[in-house]
Write a protein that binds this DNA or RNA. Structure first.
Lengths: 325, 325
DNA sequence: TTGTACGCGTTATCAG
DNA sequence: CTGATAACGCGTACAA
């Protein structure tokens, strides 16, 4: 309708500077008039690129992933890349399925949470030449590009802080460790700190449970029902800690007077709780944005594409107090 | 490699029952061996379907959308449909862009939040024949298929409750109403209830602000700095209410003794606050699942595809108390 | 600067 | 039940 060939239309859409201003405006007018949108499938078929990257996260119901995704998506959008999100519900099997589904959709990049997964999956990714970035985890010598932080060190620092305040009967509510290297690292970090003082985390003072409010509440109730009860509960994330505070309140106890509580993540929730939560601040948004940049670099085969490690910070609020205060 | 034509491979993948067991297993073996995945673009081009539906939400950082999406995605996945999510950041202009982007990707269905948008957009959708469902809003006579609840009636009921408890100096912290029919309806509902008692919401006791914790905190501080100060603050959602509680605490006041606060949505946050939030319970997950079912029906051209309205419930907790208690 | 012509991987039609 | 073949809409050498 603009009196030009399809090739010219294609150029107007993809490399407008290579078309004369006159023809370009004619084409643009026609595009606007007919409300034309290029066909994604045709485009993908011809160019073998989709301008799409996929992300597989455990669940959107956890604020940390929601925030990270939001930042990831915003950063990708700046380069005209669309994000497709899938969820695994913390199930490694399901995660593998979702990764395959995204590959089938021709994503030209993947963002995955953590490092723990079947080696065969990594092989598939490399064989297909699909660039990917691991987020949320970081350790020295990780063989894949990752954007994260040292979960173990952060948890260790938190436990050390608790110990420094005089606590000795310390319990932990951890996330489910199966297939979740962050949850494992956080338990290990706490163990490190305790071991340095000759203490350990045994069956009675470590509970592993899904990252849900009521799960945290139940776990805390169980931990606090032994005698003598722990004086501090270290939690695998803020949601579990919020649950622990609920349990403490409902048992007629008080935090931090009777029991101190610590969290991990520093989501908004931590700040509005009463007492506000002492927790580990994690820069979720910045990680999401950094993951986007790294992935775009990998995709463009740039050689300055390298892993990024973020620092975490211990945020001291009211839920953790010296023993016997 | 299986010694068959591409047509047969296609059949094995899409209508396995139309292929003899023998050939089928040969093909399946080859598929497994080469870890073959059909090319999404080619498929979309040839079949003109993508088995993809798109959703445009304001932001993933609000737990209500995250929960709704999660449920939507799970329900769609049961029918082999993938969900692609885009965010508008509460900007109508950006929402329109995102909708066009999703149409360009050939989504064969759309889930949109609320009803307020440019009529031209609705025309585009109808012209293209892309089925869509509006979620989160519902009103009698809505011309489009929707899955939601009556925001206005729910807000009215909440305000009535506040009035019934003796409050007369009532303020409201609302979400930004521009392009957000839910925010508008909630303000209208509160106005309805006040008007029925001869009261009104004027400039000094209504603040419109983004749905963020600190925005709610600032708004509450402002509302509470007039004399005489309001005895109750009705909030447009739970996040704003949490912010209001922070302000109250930081001003040396106490809720609900000095000021009552109410929320809207009933996210987990509402339950862990101290005092726990009196709020409007909204079945976000069920709405998401219902939206998925309705959209799948529309897509299949089933004629029993009709709007769904959900009931909300007033959840009484500690943040709202009788005046002068 | 613009047009021609081919091929991308799949599905659908038709014939065998 | 299976194979040959023609679209599907676009990007991109190459030619003009």
């Amino acid at each position: 309708m603009a009196g030009v060939s399809t090739a010219t239309v294609s150029r107007v859409l993809n490399e407008p500077e290579r078309v004369s201003a006159k023809t370009r405006s004619r084409v643009e007018a026609a595009v606007a008039h007919f409300d034309y949108t290029p066909h994604f499938g045709g485009r993908a078929l011809a160019s073998n690129r989709t301008n799409t990257v996929g992300a597989v996260i455990p669940t959107m119901e956890n604020a940390i992933f929601a925030r990270g995704l939001q930042a990831l998506q915003e950063a990708l959008a700046e380069d005209g890349v669309t994000l497709v999100v899938a969820t695994s519900n913390y199930d490694p099997e399901r995660e593998a399925q979702q990764i395959r589904a995204l590959l089938g959709r021709g994503v030209d990049g993947l963002v995955l949470i953590g490092e723990a997964r079947d080696p065969a999956l990594y092989e598939t990714l490399e064989r297909r030449g699909v660039p990917f970035v691991l987020v949320w985890s970081w350790r020295r010598d990780c063989p894949w590009p990752c954007v994260g932080f040292d979960n173990r060190a952060a948890a260790r620092a938190m436990a050390q802080k608790v110990l420094d305040l005089g606590h000795r009967r310390i319990a932990m509510i951890a996330g489910v460790t199966h297939g979740n290297d962050r949850a494992v690292a956080r338990v290990d970090g706490v163990r490190d700190a305790l071991a340095a003082r000759g203490l350990r985390l045994d069956e009675t003072n470590l509970i592993e449970t899904p990252y849900h409010l009521d799960a945290g509440e139940n776990a805390a109730r169980q931990l606090l029902s032994v005698t003598p009860r722990p004086t501090a509960i270290v939690c695998g994330n803020d949601v579990l800690a919020a649950g622990a505070l609920l349990a403490i309140r409902s048992m007629g106890l008080s935090a931090p007077a009777d029991v101190s509580v610590t969290g991990f993540d520093d989501i908004d929730l931590a700040y509005v709780l009463d007492p506000p939560l002492t927790t580990v601040h994690v820069p979720h948004r910045r990680m999401g944005a950094a993951a986007a940049r790294l992935l775009l670099r990998l995709r463009a085969q740039e050689d300055n594409a390298t892993s990024v490690v973020f620092e975490t910070a211990l945020v001291e609020r009211g839920s953790l107090a010296p023993l016997g205060k």
